[in-house]
């Protein structure tokens, strides 16, 4: 059984080739600086984990990469070319796909309609050209089966799937449509242990197929299982930036839990 991920991922990018490079990227909303001085490189075949508490600037970082907001300082390069996205479409056209935790799919629509949403297949290229429904159904069905996502019926509303399955459908969709960079926004936050495992496996599979993955999370355990490179954000600034070989899970966990502050607190509370 061959996996869709390796079939569809563009093979041009060698493992380790930088896909997205950020240099001193920042974003200010009026007088409020939500993010500043971010250096982040997303390379093919690697998982870059961005960790941080609520309000640390993770979502701002995603929005810049996915084209929902443009950055206000620093430089953002895709394949070495300086870019500034003004719409999600532009970011998608550069092969950057974002899977959001809460808004990955439209719950009331069928699985196959969700799979092809925004990239529908049509019989003809005129306005109101009919959709090629049988083809979309069979592609969505076979893609999901190949990835081992068990969907009872491709025609059921996607809201009837579990949270983990919905995430996986969204990831499969992004990969099928030629994503080279996959941004996963808190993919495991609302999931149970088993469901998280499923999502982490797809994350690893996407990485092995040569995609660059940005894994946004506040769970250092999940991050450490798949990550090659770790960045911790705090109040819009980078407080840790290390490769996997330079950092241990303990260090990551301690830093996420508050690091120095926590050590001081535990000293104060010592009994």
């Amino acid at each position: 059984m061959t996996d869709t991920i390796s079939e569809h991922a563009q093979r041009t990018a060698e493992k380790g080739t930088p896909l997205i490079e950020m240099d001193g990227v920042g974003k200010a909303y009026g007088p409020i600086r939500a993010l500043e001085g971010i250096n982040l490189t997303v390379s093919a075949g690697e998982v870059a984990c961005v960790l941080g508490d609520n309000g640390a600037g993770k979502s701002t970082l995603i929005k810049i990469m996915s084209g929902l907001h443009s950055h206000s300082e620093g430089s953002l390069r895709v394949d070495g070319n300086e870019v500034s996205f003004s719409s999600p479409r532009e970011s998608l056209d550069h092969g950057i796909a974002t899977v959001y935790q809460d808004l990955a799919v439209v719950a009331l629509m069928e699985v196959w309609r969700n799979f092809f949403l925004g990239s529908e297949l049509r019989k003809g290229n005129f306005p109101l050209a009919p959709l090629d429904i049988p083809k979309m159904r069979s592609i969505a069905d076979s893609e999901l089966k190949k990835m081992g996502i068990a969907v009872k019926d491709i025609n059921q509303p996607i809201g009837t799937l579990s949270g983990g399955q919905r995430q996986c459908v969204a990831i499969a969709r992004a990969v099928y449509f030629g994503a080279r960079v996959l941004i996963l926004d808190e993919p495991t936050a609302a999931l149970g242990v088993k469901q998280s495992g499923v999502v982490l496996k797809y994350t690893a599979a996407a990485r092995d197929a040569g995609l660059g993955v940005v894994f946004i999370t506040h769970n250092p355990h999940h991050a450490y299982m798949v990550g090659d490179h770790f960045i911790i954000l705090k109040l819009g600034r980078r407080v840790l930036d290390k490769r996997r070989s330079e950092v241990s899970l303990e260090e990551l966990t301690a830093e996420m839990a508050g690091g120095q502050e926590l050590a001081e607190l535990s000293h104060e509370l010592k009994r």
């Binding site: 808004l103 799919v105 949403l117 009919p130 959709l131």
Partner: peptide, 21 residues
Amino acid sequence: TRVGNWIFAVGGNAASARAVG
């Protein structure tokens, strides 16, 4: 049609519809 797909998506979840283009 594609437009019909978009109508459902826009009403069902405008943010995710926007995110997929």
